[in-house]
Simulated assay, not measured.
Amino acid sequence: MTDEGYQTATVQGKEIPYDPETLRRIRDHPCFSEKACHKSGRAHLAVAPKCNIQCNYCVRDFDCVNESRPGVASEVLSPEQGLARVREILDKFPYVKVIGIAGPGEPLANPETLETMRLIHENHPHLILCISTNGLLLPDVIDELIRYDAYNLTVTLNAVDPEIGAQIYSHVTYKGKKYVGVEGAKLLLEQQLKGIQMAVERKMIVKINTVYIPGINDEHIPEIAKVVGAMGVFNFNIIPLIPQYKFADITPPTPAMKRAMHDRCAPYVKQMKHCQRCRADAVGKLGQDVQSSLSSPCAGEKEE
């Protein structure tokens, strides 16, 4: 315990002071605390189907119950259905401490995301709200996230060089206009870095996801870690590429390559090494998903 009610957490070997509420958001969140993943659960609400960028590794148009990867969800919920699902989850799985929105598209490109967060914040204020985003709209809506106490934030940042980003993104759509190539990648990067800086200034707990794409951004990843570490993000998650869409022919990095990349990035920022590449509707502890035991709020609506 430090002065004025602050406690500390160890980050990169250093004791960093956090107020008790921020420390709770770290210690009870399985993505921000490796210890929490063994005792606390999270639930992703799939309320955000639309996306405003097209990544060359992303496919969202099919679902398999045996497939666990970002962008996959069995059904899309309305905000009201999301709230009902939270109530069912808390009744069946009281160890769930975190409610996150991570797709299946880009959460901030869907107004349903903020409405869902409002409903949960008003009805279950003790829950930790978490958002995962590509960052394009983050500067535009960040204060709304703060309004609903959504202080846990993940931003997917695959390049800090627009020339490399142009190889990863097919297009970026912002305020009704589509951007391609370096122009699109530069716009996305500017928004991402601006949003990350705003989040750090607002005392949000920021995690960076970087997809490890051999032959595209592999030698660039330590530079990403260096940039975001200097900005004050909390941790850094390296996600091996799942070969699909335009990157279907790229061989993904091996576990040994991933470990070596963690070692290269560790001097700059704390590393997250226990990611399970969760579905957009994942429920339960990491690696122990239980969403199949929940009722389907959309089942009755499919019948005419």
Score class of each variant (00 low, 15 high):
31 C>T: 02
40 S>L: 04
37 C>N: 09
48 A>T: 03
31 C>V: 07
40 S>E: 11
40 S>A: 14
26 I>W: 08
54 Q>D: 14
39 K>Y: 12
52 N>S: 06
49 P>S: 05
29 H>G: 00
51 C>N: 06
22 T>Y: 02
23 L>K: 14
20 P>K: 11
49 P>N: 07
46 A>M: 04
54 Q>F: 04
18 Y>M: 09
35 K>L: 11
35 K>P: 00
22 T>Q: 12
38 H>E: 14
33 S>R: 09
19 D>P: 09
26 I>R: 09
29 H>V: 09
42 R>T: 13
22 T>R: 15
54 Q>M: 10
41 G>W: 09
38 H>K: 13
55 C>K: 06
31 C>Y: 12
53 I>K: 01
47 V>M: 03
38 H>W: 09
48 A>W: 03
32 F>S: 04
21 E>L: 15
22 T>A: 15
53 I>A: 10
44 H>S: 03
40 S>V: 06
52 N>C: 06
43 A>S: 13
52 N>A: 04
30 P>F: 04
49 P>Q: 06
44 H>N: 15
36 A>P: 03
30 P>D: 01
30 P>W: 06
52 N>Y: 07
32 F>R: 14
20 P>N: 10
26 I>N: 05
27 R>F: 06
47 V>Q: 03
52 N>L: 05
44 H>W: 10
43 A>H: 04
37 C>G: 00
46 A>T: 03
26 I>H: 08
20 P>H: 09
37 C>Y: 02
52 N>V: 08
22 T>H: 13
37 C>L: 07
47 V>W: 04
55 C>S: 08
33 S>D: 13
30 P>N: 02
34 E>Y: 05
40 S>N: 15
35 K>E: 15
42 R>H: 06
44 H>V: 04
19 D>A: 11
24 R>T: 12
23 L>D: 05
45 L>R: 01
19 D>E: 12
48 A>F: 01
39 K>S: 11
25 R>E: 07
31 C>I: 12
55 C>R: 06
51 C>I: 02
37 C>F: 01
54 Q>I: 13
30 P>Y: 04
43 A>P: 01
39 K>A: 09
45 L>V: 01
53 I>H: 04
36 A>Q: 06
